[in-house]
């Protein structure tokens, strides 16, 4: 039976793991290599790395960190942030990433998904969607770290991403990000019921129940969270026991 996945996410800025709230008020948390080792040991099913500032200057440094992390872990590893081209994807995979996550660039250049999927395989192309609910009730896709509304319907964009060849979708609810009041079930469900590729829910985890909820009620294939794992507010082995007791298949 395919297990539901628990994925700690590290937002990395200039070689350090940081945390923010609604993408703001950035605080230093830890050394990514040390943190990654801890997650590898504690039973995390996968790790995600986002280069949150992704300026040109820090890209070589970032790939160095990617390589250092890859050397220390034996679980799948997704890297995102600042991917601009097929060459960037190639370099990131060569540095030890298993998948790359594409966000803003895919919106501006959807063909990149198609091209990348053909070249490297769908399994390593993750489409990351930052979405926010508008007054109309529709979900809009935002880019540039949640700063810019593209006006594109998030559900339609997820379907298009699948058609272009993305192998997985990360859906991040901007409204609930960092609030610790639970994932946005409505948004997650809207995506999971409209695509036939794995969907990773992101944004809002505060408790073990929130994670159970998004895996069951919204049919997410994986739950991603950052600070609740970094600060051990949610202990991963305990979380897995809790999910197992609630009838969810998890790797233990």
């Amino acid at each position: 039976m395919l297990a539901k996945r628990i994925i700690p996410c590290m937002d990395v800025d200039k070689g350090r793991v940081v945390k923010g709230h609604k993408f703001q008020n950035i605080q230093d948390v830890a050394d990514p290599v040390e943190l990654a080792k801890r997650y590898n040991q504690s039973g995390a099913d996968e790790l995600v790395f986002y280069d949150i500032t992704a300026s040109n200057e820090n890209r070589p440094l970032f790939l160095e960190v990617v390589e250092k992390v890859a050397a220390e872990i034996a679980i799948p590893f997704t890297v995102g942030g600042g991917i601009r081209s097929i060459e960037d994807i190639y370099q990131t995979l060569r540095s030890g990433a298993d998948k790359v996550s594409i966000n803003s660039l895919a919106v501006k250049n959807p063909d990149l998904i198609r091209e990348a999927a053909l070249k490297f395989g769908s399994q390593c192309i993750v489409l990351s969607i930052d979405a926010k609910q508008m007054d109309s009730g529709k979900w809009h896709t935002f880019i540039k770290g949640g700063r810019e509304d593209t006006g594109i319907d998030a559900v339609a964009w997820a379907k298009e991403g699948e058609r272009l060849g993305a192998g997985e979708i990360v859906v991040n609810a901007i409204d609930t990000d960092g609030d610790k009041n639970g994932y946005n079930l409505e948004l997650t469900k809207a995506i999971t019921s409209n695509v036939n590729i794995p969907v990773v829910a992101s944004g809002g985890a505060g408790s073990k129940s929130h994670i159970l909820e998004v895996l069951t009620k919204a049919d997410a294939d994986a739950a991603l969270a950052a600070s609740v794992f970094h600060y051990n507010d949610i202990n991963i082995p305990e979380l897995k026991t809790f999910l197992d007791q609630n009838g969810i298949s998890v790797r233990r």
């Binding site: 034996a74 995979l93 298993d98 490297f120 395989g121 390593c124």
Partner: peptide
């Protein structure tokens, strides 16, 4: 072009 470095890392470890 895939990620084979992690295979090498794993064997080394």
């Amino acid at each position: 072009a895939g990620n084979i470095k992690s295979l090498q890392f794993a064997l080394t470890s």
